[in-house]
Amino acid sequence: MDGEPFDVPEGRTIAAALIAAGRVSWRTTRAGGRPRGVFCGIGVCFDCLVVVNGVPDVRACQRVPADGDVVRSQRGAELPG
């Protein structure tokens, strides 16, 4: 995540791994640049978005990472690639 290696227990979501590591936010909104992390935790609110392997708009609370996935914070609206 953001260049830092994470050992994530099998089945744990990206969001759970980040919160367990003490991170509260990892996204900024596109208009106000406001920080965001988990809100609903069950895939409804789309607040916790991250970029996974270059693909933005991935819900961290839903996505269980695979070994070697490269995850980073999402800043506003981003293009894939």
């Binding site: 596109r30 933005p56 708009d57 506003g76 609206a77 981003e78 293009l79």
Partner: peptide, 8 residues
């Protein structure tokens, strides 16, 4: 679509 960066 989801919002994209300006100029896309």
């Amino acid at each position: 679509t989801a919002p994209l960066p300006p100029g896309t």
